[in-house]
């Protein structure tokens, strides 16, 4: 490796990492939180079989899973302003990532809710708990454990997915790599570098997932 490239990489590394910490991670965290809220609500509506709303949830999942994330980003950021709905780039990214992954996570949660044995609900009723109490104390905690690997998967996929925000002018880690590259023209080196930083983040999350799974299994040991 020549000295110039090495210098560029060493020089850009802290900058990229900074954008990772300042933008990619918070963007992922916020989008994931939004997705989780959506997923729980959408899954619970279907689990409880709430009329009309249930159909609405299926419609939402159908639309989101059937269209590309990139197109969704463009539609909201470049398309909606034409009918007067104008959002800044960053909130657009959070909203679209949240809505997008929320649909997949809702399906994971729905499956997990349905995997909780019906007897758990019945036993709850028999000790005079009501539906929401049973959901809160018994069914949802068990469903979260069952869905934990799938939800972790979503988080990891979302972390990488935030790089698409670059296409709607959010300066996150990948966009910063593009900007630096625009000055120095070292595509191979810089994109390899940024790829490795994503890999670092995701490796950390994988460890976190392992640790979480062990933690969940160590008490209770619910078999999914």
């Amino acid at each position: 490796m020549n000295e110039r490239l090495w210098e560029i990489l060493v020089d850009s590394f802290p900058k990229l990492l900074l954008y990772g910490a300042k933008v990619t991670i918070p963007l992922t965290a916020m989008s994931f939180a939004l997705a989780l809220v959506i997923a729980v609500i959408v899954a619970m509506i279907q689990y409880a079989d709430v009329k009309v709303l249930r159909q609405l949830c299926r419609f939402y999942i159908w639309i989101v899973r059937g269209t590309p994330l990139l197109v969704q980003l463009y539609l909201v950021f470049y398309g909606l302003p034409q009918i007067g709905i104008k959002l800044n780039a960053y909130p657009t990214a959070v909203l679209v990532f949240g809505l997008n992954e929320g649909a997949y996570m809702a399906e994971s949660m729905r499956g997990a809710l349905e995997a909780v044995p019906k007897g758990q609900l019945e036993a709850g009723y028999c000790v005079r708990m009501n539906y929401l109490q049973i959901m809160q104390h018994i069914v949802l905690p068990q469903a979260f454990r069952i869905a934990f690997p799938a939800l972790s998967n979503s988080l990891i996929s979302m972390t990488k997915g935030t790089s698409l925000a670059a296409t709607i002018t959010v300066t996150e880690m990948f966009r910063e790599a593009q900007v630096i590259n625009g000055r120095v023209y070292e595509s191979l080196g810089l994109y390899t570098e940024v790829a490795l930083i994503y890999l670092l983040f995701c490796t950390f999350l994988t460890f976190l997932q392992r640790w979480g799974e062990k933690k969940l299994n160590s008490y209770g040991g619910i078999k999914a």
Binding site: P117, G119, Q120, A123, H137, I138, Q142, I222
Partner: peptide
């Protein structure tokens, strides 16, 4: 009170 054939204890408690 109801006692089930397969106990139905709350598994997360």
């Amino acid at each position: 009170a109801f006692v089930f054939q397969n106990y139905n204890l709350f598994l997360n408690q």
